[in-house]
Each structure stands twice: as structure tokens, then as C-alpha cells.
């Protein structure tokens, strides 16, 4: 451990650009940081540049310009040092489908130059942890998709990396396997404080796993923060008040609109809708004011904006639309 900067980020990408030979601009000034121990999610539709970012940070591809550092090391200046400290699991980086589970883990450890005794212990630990102990001596060719994925992650972890890169860790898994994988990833960051950088198409996945999320669109980060911050940035929650009597609707609109911190009040028959910075906090005041004005309320609800709303706001497209549009041209 060197005592240079007390808290340099585990991963740092600054103004990364990359244009592929045939002129596709994959990254267009992408910048973000991941703190030590944090789980960071890159969220975006097909072709946004997520995998390209992972490839650059894991020393595979070269950026045209910009700086990429992992555990404080520049990926172009000292790639071997970076490689020693990271684990990668990606659909673009696979182990050959030859051999048996235990053999693959041992081989992965050998290439990491682990000591034989230590390696043996580590392999059985990983097999247990990823529920592969029973299948350890089976040929990996006979593994299910979920088992294969777990083995891939276990292989990426043999050498106890400081940073784990997961490109679409749950794509193609059934819901049960996906939930199991989420628990595994959450456990890694909880138990050993591992820094995790993951990419995903799933809003729910980012919401569940990531301490912080960055939305990537066309090679740039268009929004960044915790899931809650991103949602709050939308300028508030939706408040939906259902009145007992539709004739009081216009009166109710006036009452609600006069309250501080409430915007975009609209009326539709018996319903009054509005936005507020803090929906849950605004409701009691609204109810009290309506009661003072003698307006009866039948029901009230507060809705948090979804990440989908955040996505729409920042990219101008619904997440599902973007995914659909891109999936046509994706290999």
C-alpha cells in the first residue's frame, strides 16, 4: 500500500473517446468515478457504449483520448498492474467451453500465479460459495446458463481482485437465477467490500444493486447519482388526490396551488394531480388545507418517479423504446 492519495477512486474515467475503425463513435467524452467499495451501475440501451467503457477500463481496448485509471493506475501506462487487480466477467470475455468446473478454476488461478496450496483452498471456497460444489467435476459443457455464469464470475474472483467488472451479469438468465445472482453480487460488496462496476439493461437491476447509477447515452453520461437522487432530480413526486365531490374540483385546485412547494396542479373530473419536491411531506399540509376549506377527500396517493422517467427525461426516449430501436441492428 502506498500512501499517496488517501482516497483515490477505485475507477476513474475522464473524457474518454473512442471511434471504431469504420467510423462508429462509441464514446464521446465519457466521465465518471467509482469510489472504493462502491457498486456502480452503467445503465443504457444497446450501443450506448457500456461494453466499450468496460473494455477500455479492463485494458483490452484503447481509448482514442482521455484518461482511464483503475486502482490508481493508468490503464495504458501500467496495464499489467491493472490486470493483476481486476476481475472481469463479460459476454465478450468467455472461458473456452472445455474441461470441468474445478479444472477451470484451478487453471484460472494458475494463470494468476497463485500458490498451489492457497489455490486449492480458494477453489473449494468459491465452488461452495457459488453453489457449484456438486457440479465441480462435471464438464462445463453440461452446465446450465446460470451455472456457467456463476462459474465465470468465480473464475474472475480466484485472485481476490480489488475491482470486479461485470458486463450484463444477468442477461439471458431466468428470473430465479437472476435473483440469485443479485444476491451474490450484493454479498460480494457487503462481505469483502469489493468495488463493483456493472452494466445493465435492467432498470430494476441498477436500482437494486448499484449504490450509484450513471445513465449512458450515445457515448456520454447523461445523468449520474444514487437512484433516489436521480428520481428526485425530476423535481418531485406525483401527488394524486381523489375528491369526494367532483363539483369542488376547481375550488380544490385553488387551495392546492396556493400551498408552497407544489407545482403543476391539474384537474381532471374528481382528481387533482400535482408535483411536489417531497410528496410524502406535502400531503399532510394539502389535506389540512382542503379540510379547512371544507373539501372532502376520498383518497390520496404519492408516486415516486421511476428510473424509466429519469431515463426518458435525460435521453428523450422511453427505455423500452430505446432498447427496441437498437435491438434491430444489434448482433
Amino acid at each position: 500500500m502506498t500512501a499517496r492519495e488517501p482516497r483515490s477512486p477505485a475507477v476513474e474515467a475522464r473524457d474518454l473517446t473512442k471511434t471504431y475503425p469504420r467510423g462508429v463513435k462509441a464514446l464521446d467524452g465519457l466521465t465518471f468515478e467509482v469510489a472504493e467499495g462502491e457498486t456502480f451501475g452503467l445503465l443504457g440501451p444497446n450501443g450506448a457504449g457500456k461494453s466499450t467503457t468496460i473494455k477500455i477500463l479492463t485494458t483490452l481496448a484503447k481509448a482514442d483520448s482521455g484518461v482511464a485509471r483503475v486502482v490508481g493506475q493508468d490503464v495504458t501506462r501500467d496495464p499489467q498492474e491493472v490486470r493483476r487487480r481486476i476481475g472481469v466477467c463479460s459476454p465478450g470475455f468467455r472461458a473456452e467451453p472445455v474441461g470441468r468446473g474445478v479444472g477451470k478454476l484451478v487453471a484460472a488461478g494458475r494463470l494468476r500465479r497463485l500458490d498451489v496450496v492457497e489455490l486449492r483452498r480458494r477453489v473449494s471456497e468459491l465452488l461452495d460459495r457459488f453453489g457449484l460444489a456438486d457440479a465441480a467435476s462435471r464438464k462445463v459443457r453440461t452446465y446450465s446458463g446460470g451455472m456457467q455464469r456463476r462459474l465465470d464470475i468465480a473464475m474472475a474472483l480466484v485472485h481476490r481482485p480489488r475491482v470486479l467488472f461485470l458486463d450484463e451479469p444477468t442477461t439471458g438468465l431466468d428470473p430465479e437465477a437472476r435473483t440469485a445472482m443479485w444476491q451474490e453480487i450484493a454479498r460480494l460488496s457487503r462481505d469483502v467490500g469489493m468495488t463493483v462496476l456493472l452494466t445493465t439493461h435492467y432498470l430494476e437491476e441498477a436500482d437494486r444493486l448499484a449504490d450509484r447509477i450513471a445513465i449512458v447515452d450515445r457515448g456520454r453520461i447523461v445523468a449520474e447519482g444514487t437512484a433516489d437522487q436521480l428520481k428526485t432530480e425530476l423535481e418531485g413526486d406525483g401527488i394524486d388526490i381523489e375528491l369526494a365531490d367532483a363539483t369542488q374540483a376547481e375550488l380544490a385546485r385553488g387551495v392546492v396551488a396556493s400551498l408552497p412547494g407544489i407545482r403543476e396542479v391539474a384537474v381532471e373530473q374528481r382528481r387533482v394531480t400535482a408535483r411536489a419536491q417531497d410528496g410524502a411531506g406535502a400531503v399532510p399540509a394539502a389535506l389540512a388545507a382542503l379540510e379547512r376549506a371544507g373539501i372532502g377527500v376520498a383518497a390520496v396517493s404519492v408516486t415516486r418517479p421511476s428510473l424509466d422517467d429519469v431515463y426518458l427525461r435525460h435521453t428523450g426516449r422511453r427505455f423500452a423504446e430505446a432498447a427496441l430501436a437498437a435491438s434491430g441492428g444489434d448482433a
Binding site: 493483476r84 470475455f93 468467455r94 472461458a95 473456452e96 494463470l111
Partner: peptide
């Protein structure tokens, strides 16, 4: 074949 399978990419991210 190694490139298409992605196994080359995995090797290239190992410290070898």
C-alpha cells in the same frame, strides 16, 4: 475462433 468465442479477450485481460 479464440477471438470469436471471446476467449482471446479474456486472456488479454489477464496479467500474462
Amino acid at each position: 475462433e479464440e477471438i470469436e468465442r471471446g476467449t482471446m479477450n479474456r486472456l488479454l485481460t489477464l496479467p500474462i
